[in-house]
Design a binder for these strands. Structure first.
Lengths: 243, 243
DNA sequence: TGTACATCAGTGAACGCGCGTTCACTGATGTAC
DNA sequence: TGTACATCAGTGAACGCGCGTTCACTGATGTAC
């Protein structure tokens, strides 16, 4: 009743933004609760609107899905970036790696529906448009930064010859590695890029296992389990404590 | 027309078995084509039956799903076992590990719908019954055998101290590791069990990335990519060539 | 070997439901003069 | 400051569709005597 007066035309715009946000929240709630497929009608019902009203905000069900997916990527990406920043004491590359890794896991456990949306199996009848690819790389980039910074600072130890992989003999693959390296902020001839990609694969494999219940009846000490995966990956990459 | 005569009552039984099998095949085809959710009516249509006829073979949609899931686990499990057996030359632990790993990948790429069924995100509105847990461990057990045999034969090199993880201080977690170790045929005090579990996590992470399209626009040389993941995991576990 | 009965696969209609999307509409909010 | 018009959010009915499941039925296959 005693609001400050709004800048004229924005009152409708603001309500619109709030509604759009609420629709997305309700949709996420639905995905989370029933694990159900997303239904516009169900969302409308939950919001106390008639189903056709949703079309004022999203032109179709797939566009709503796309919005949710983009939001999820952005949210996870931001979480990862924040975790990195919070741990970003000078030279503390290992701490940054842990911070980012654990943040990703925590985000996924807290929001399994959103996680499944972006790292689970593809959604039946839906194919992600291009708009999703940029946000998708944000998390990857945050993980990369910890390792690329460490390498740039000369703090990545090369694996000793007993466990070193011989360089690939596949020139195309080598070229792809170089391209990915520079896209992620590594030096083109980064020695660690391949192990970094492996580490990323492993991290999401581990989160998948935990979130999708593949650890049930086997590992209950999941925090410890995950932490030790991260440790192992750090040493595999050659990022060591207090070096 | 010139068949050998069937053992009396089994003609109906045999047709029944064939129909059951065909229903499952058609259902898989549907999952693969549309990536769609499984629909009894669609399956019936494809088989030229009326939808209610399916109920002579499966009491409900979920039971059909369960059958598909069990079949998928068994099929992948058998693939892994066969790959192990084929590579099972004396002492060739590394060859066995590669053989099993590549076989898992090939199976997943050839049958992405079935792979998604068992290693993708949980299916909306469906919760897997207990009958699925035994078949689920078959693949894991096959992977385990390569490594457990190597360890039993003294052919697993312990990581040198620079990259060794200190033992966990979490007693519960340690106990869980021991339990998993003996369930999978490792010695209770196996030194490699933890790295083995990491390797499994990583392998399925890698297959997930490839099957679910997370490698698109980044890595095209996927055979090489996967092969090198396996190599890296082998050295991480301490399984070395010609040792 | 032939007949009487039981089992079973498949039919076709129906139940009750939910879905995405469209369309013409009402009434409230914003804009231009 | 007041009026005329344009924009927009939300309604309610409808379209056409697909779904899982049930039920009483027909006719063919198997079984017992």
């Amino acid at each position: 009743m005693t609001d400050e007066k709004p800048p004229a035309r924005s009152i409708r715009a603001r309500v619109r933004a709030e509604m759009t946000e609420e629709i997305k929240q309700v949709a996420l709630g639905h995905l989370a609760r029933d694990g159900s497929a997303l239904s516009l009608r169900a969302v409308a019902r939950d919001m106390g609107m008639v189903s056709s009203a949703i079309y004022r905000y999203f032109p179709s069900r797939d566009e709503l899905l796309t919005a949710l997916i983009i939001d999820a990527y952005e949210s996870l990406g931001e979480t990862a970036e924040t975790a990195d920043r919070d741990a970003d004491r000078q030279d503390a590359y290992l701490a940054r790696w842990f911070s980012v890794g654990h943040a990703i896991r925590r985000w996924a456990l807290a929001r399994p529906a959103e996680y499944a949306l972006i790292y689970g199996s593809p959604i039946p009848g839906y194919s992600a448009p291009v708009d999703t690819v940029a946000p998708a790389t944000r998390t990857l980039a945050a993980m990369a930064r910890c390792v690329a910074d460490a390498e740039a600072a000369g703090k990545v130890k090369e694996p000793d010859s007993a466990i070193a992989l011989p360089p690939t003999e596949n020139a195309d693959y080598a070229a792809e590695l170089r391209a990915v390296a520079s896209a992620l902020g590594f030096a083109e001839d980064s020695k660690v890029i391949e192990r970094f990609l492996s580490a990323v694969t492993h991290v999401f494999g581990a989160v998948n296992f935990e979130v999708f219940g593949r650890l049930n009846n086997a590992i209950d000490q999941r925090g410890e389990w995950f932490d030790r995966q991260l440790r192992l990956l750090a040493t595999t990459m050659g990022i060591n404590p207090q070096q």
